[in-house]
Structure formats: C-alpha cells, structure tokens
Design a protein around this nucleic acid. Structure first.
Lengths: 263, 263
DNA sequence: AGCCCATGTTCGCAGTTGAACGGATCAACA
DNA sequence: TGTTGATCCGTTCAACTGCGAACATGGGCT
C-alpha cells in the first residue's frame, strides 16, 4: 500500500463518517499510529480536516453531516459562477445600458456593477436590482411583473411589456442548460418568454452558462446558441464544445486570461 | 466521542432549549458532571452561554441601555402597525384587486393576504410582493421601476406607467404624516407621484396612518385627507382628529372593535 | 556501499477525564 | 432572619490516553 492510497482511504473514510480516531484507523490500515498521525498532519495542512485529541473531524465543524458534502460541491459551483461574473464584468463599458436575466450570476455581476458609475442595469432579478441600487451613483431598473418567491425574480406579461420600453446595449442571459445540439434551455415557460422579448430589444447578446450545465437540458427550449454572439463559461468546459462554438463563429470566453488574450 | 463533538452537542442543545442543567447533560452525553462543567467553562469563556447554579442559559447579546428603550418604543409601534394591518385585512373582499403602497404596513398586510385566495395584490413594495407570492394560490404583481434599497420598493416613471395598466378595487395608502390641517404627506417626491397615479386608478381609497404620525409632516404634500374615503389608524388617536374626520364625512377605523361596531 | 524516504518503536510529556473533598449556594421552613 | 439539608461548584489528585521528538529499521534508488 502506497502512502497516497492510505491517505485517500482516510479521506473517504472521513467523508463517510465525518470523524475518525487514530486507533481505529491504525488497525484498519494495519499501520502504526504514528503513521496515521503523520498522515493526518498532511491532511490538516491541506485543510481537509481538523485534528484533535484522539483523532480528527472534517474541517468546518459548523455544518450538518448531510449539508457537508453539498457545501464542497457548492463551493466549486460558486467559484465557477464568480469566474463567469468576472469575465462578464470586463465586457461592460461606460454608459452601457445592460440587461441581466435572473439567476445566480446576475446577482454576482450586480455586486460588481454596484460600485461602477455610468452604467444602467435593467433586470427582472429582484436581488440584483436591489444590489445595484444600493450604491446610489448607479441606476437600476427592476422590471414589473409577477414575483416568483423561489427565484426572487419577476416574470409575466408585464415584465415582457416593460422590457420593450428600453434599448439595451448588452444583455447577459443566464441559461439553465445547453444541450448536446447547442440548444439553450431554461427551467420555466415565463423565463423563456421574457428572455425572448429581452433578446429582441438588445444589441450585443451574451450567454452565461456554467460548464457543468453543458450537456444538460432544462425543460423549456429557448433557441439555438447562435441567438447570441458571445458565450461565457468556465475554463473546465469540454474541448469539444469549445471547438464547435468557435466553428459557429461565436466568441467563447472561459476566463480572464482567455479574455485578455482576445479569445 | 471527541471533546469538540461534545461541546457542539451542548451548543445545539442550548440553542434548542435555551437552557440546560449539568446533571441531564452529564447523563445525556454519558460523561461525568465534572467534564460537563469544564465544557461549560469553555463555552462561557467564548461567550456562548452564561453559567449559573445547576446549569447554564444562552448568553444574551449585549444590549446597550439606550437600545433597550428603543426596543420598547419599537414594540409599541409594531403593535400599532399590526392593529392597522388587521383592520385593513378585514376590509378586503373576495376577488378584490388591491393596491398596497410601500411601507411597514404593506408588508404586514401582505403577510395576512398571503394565506387568502382569490385576491390579487398590486404593489411597489418588494417585500410585500414576495410575501404574497410565497403562497402560490394568490396572485401578486410587483410594479416595475427604480428600486430604492432603503425602503425596498420601486418608484419612478415606469412604476407610474405600470400602475395605470390596472384597475384596482381598493387601494391602501400608507402615508408618513398627517398635518394639523389634515393634509397627507410622504417622505419622497417619487412616492408622492406614484401614489397620485395609483389613487387615480382605484375605486375605494383607504389611508393608513399610525396615530403617532398625526400632527407630523413629511416633506412632500400629497393632498387633503379627503382624497380618500376611509382612514385606518390606532385607537390612541386624539379625539379631536376623530371628530374632525367624522365631520368630513370620512369613515374612520381605529380597531377591530370599532370596525365591527360599524364606526 | 551510501543515501533517502517511509515507517515503526521508545519514552517523556501534555491533554483529558473522573473521583474525592471542602466550600459555596440554594430552597424550605421555622 | 437564621438554620439546615441538599445540591452544586471549584480544586486537587490520579489514571489513562494520545502526542511529539528522537532514534531505529528497512527497502528502494543512485
């Protein structure tokens, strides 16, 4: 048994049980307790666990056992979302009127835009609108409509009518899935309808989608990826998608480096 | 069982029950009472609890002497607001389309309306709209416009245009002050403008105002109290106002009893 | 061989726990 | 208010366990 195997076993044991004690692990792996302690030392250094007298527990003792795994997953997802929001932020120019469709990225982008003057933000995302308007310098417009308590956004015919009143330089549309055939999908009928109206009123159209949502479909079809001219996702997106999107003459952005390199 | 686990259990036990006694915890965790006391010592040192003879209670966050008085004041105000919201709620009929202008009463009324079916609520108050729409049975419409982060409501020309699209049975307008001359006042220009538009689109017009805000003026004048046909305030409102309002042929409601008595 | 790295062993020390004991606190009652 | 019995607390001591440091072993590599 190699050391890395041993450490991996300890890792998975810890993921499963949430805690461990040196003695049991020593017997389980048939090594001395010193060795186990040395392994725990390494794992603590990399932040995977917290050592304590007699054993160790998973780092972040505050979380419930079931939410613990979700937290790791979520952290990754959050990093992905942040990355996309960063790239999107760099695309915004002074005096832009931009539209944000509701979603987790809209809020993040709104946070960055809140500190920036000379940009007007139109959105159906309630939290994003509040975030932008929290700094007075900037102007935000929240579309009217029927609120959805879950997504904290407004939809419906009023929203669609409202969005037509504005001329938008740049629209950022977060989709819920991109199919194998590069079809954009979202999770509700109202969202799809609103996005269609919004796209019609906008100059530059930019799709936002996490790499993890490629090859996944939500229920409502929005249309082909070619509706837009730019796509922002994560660096970890599959190569096959990259090449196919380039072939369609769309610009694909996957990180700040790629952006500065000019894609 | 590691010491930190034990302490975490004690923490969550305390969060749930608010207090604990050494003996029960000792039996619960299957450790000696000395150990429990030592744990409590640590938890007290970190400020999580306050030890006392036989056990411990949740540490109360340090309250400043002045904030305590404010809390009493606030409690009174909250009771006033609740009272007004209760009366307003009783005025709502099935199949009403009602408009709520933003404010502390709108949210309270929205909470009550959330559980009621067959009522449509139109509002510029973001939190009220979310509250109503949290129960799906009911329909809420949030006006579009520029959000104000402070009041969590939308205002502006889009709001005013949006409100004109609807026909409202009953409008509840919370004002910020009612002058000696029975002039209604509010605290911002945009709010005044929106309320004017909304009143124009509504059948029955009901003013909501705490008793404490009589004889107090906000900066923007909305118009005379006679714009409305009903007024809801607290029982503690001065008698002189009551008689003057009755004399104007307006209906004044001051509590559920008065309401049921027919005012 | 000589070296390096991972592992095991030994040993003194520190951390944790429980039992015991004397002092403090509480509640009931006169 | 003072007394009393019971309970609870803090402290001390002892036993145990786990820990880290130093040293020993042993296999793989140059």
């Amino acid at each position: 048994m190699f050391a890395v195997e041993r450490i991996n076993i300890i890792r998975s044991y810890l993921r499963e049980h949430g805690k461990l004690d040196v003695h049991s692990i020593s017997k389980l792996l048939n090594v001395s307790e010193v060795t186990v302690r040395r392994d725990l030392e390494k794992l603590e250094a990399e932040g995977s666990l917290t050592r304590l007298h007699g054993g160790a527990i998973l780092a972040e003792p505050e979380t419930l056992p079931e939410s613990r795994e979700a937290t790791e997953e979520e952290r990754r997802e959050e990093e992905d979302l942040e990355e996309i929001a960063r790239v999107a932020f760099l695309m915004v120019r002074d005096n832009d009127v931009i539209m944000l469709t509701n979603g987790s990225i809209a809020l993040r982008l709104a946070r960055k835009l809140a500190g920036r003057s000379g940009v007007t933000v139109l959105t159906n995302d309630i939290m994003a609108a509040l975030e932008v308007s929290s700094q007075n310098a900037n102007k935000a417009v929240l579309l009217g409509g029927s609120p959805d308590a879950e997504s904290k956004a407004v939809f419906g015919s009023l929203s669609e009518a409202n969005v037509q009143k504005f001329f938008v330089n740049r629209i950022f549309v977060q989709v819920d899935g991109i199919s194998e055939q590069l079809q954009l999908t979202v999770s509700s009928q109202e969202k799809a309808a609103l996005i269609r109206e919004a796209l019609a009123c906008s100059e530059e159209k930019i799709i936002l989608c996490e790499a993890a949502r490629f090859s996944r479909n939500a229920f409502y079809r929005l249309g082909p990826l070619s509706l837009a001219s730019k796509v922002i996702t994560n660096t970890s997106v599959q190569e096959s998608y990259k090449t196919r999107i380039f072939a369609m003459d769309l610009q694909l952005f996957t990180s700040i480096n790629a952006f500065e390199g000019g894609a």
